[in-house]
Amino acid sequence: MDGANLTRGDALRVESISKAFGGLKVFHDVNFTMPAGGLLGVIGPNGAGKTTMINIISGRLPPSSGRVMLGDTRVDSQPVYSNAGRGLVRSFQQTATFNDNSIEDNLLSAIRFSGKDRSVLERLAVLLEKFGLVENWRRDANLLPYGLQKMLGLTMALATEPRMLLLDEPAAGLEKSERGNIDDYIAFAQTEFNCGVLLVEHDMDLIKRLCPQVIVLDGGKLIAEGAPGEVLARKDVIDAYLGGSDEEDDHAQHS
């Protein structure tokens, strides 16, 4: 494995990150810190750059300037797989699974690629059962209902025994009745794996329920930071949200 594994004390620090695609400036000079094992909500209208932020932290895209530190290790512009090896693992906004492969094979792949042991499945058994993955154990991932595919993707991320999860709108596309799964998932990740969670989400109820702390991205800047109750009451945050809220392509879907 490259680099040292993340120890419990490592915080994630995003230090004056800017990103532009050609002429399109997505954001400029964004700073925030996420304490180890903590839970930080990230909100912002569509196109604010939330997915791009996850892409930069995970190493998928290089920032135009600035850096991202995980403890003493610089993680931006590192190969995605090395960061995953350090325990920094992301999920995708849209469903992302290995098509034509069963739930079992998907999970076993996640375990294998992260160099972990199959015994992690025992630790995940409660979740697997609760989400209905066990019932469909031998079915191909792409034949599952959308919500189940999404939960499979999230569970695969957890099967790598991460120390820091970057979740990109985990509740997007889920039925109201399925959203409780996300609560369970995050609680489980934190208690069972001592895992820090960066939660990008549009579901404000979920954010309010779970996150002690949120940041708001809009217009290329971090416009607010604080407890969800007070941040979501601010006028500029409400204005930022008066825009649209349609689903966006995440570029993770493989064609």
Partner: peptide, 21 residues
Amino acid sequence: RYEFAAIEKNDVLAESLGLAC
């Protein structure tokens, strides 16, 4: 076979799980 199938189906996902494609 797991590695190859994963790269074929979704290399972005495979990489995010730690596979050096």
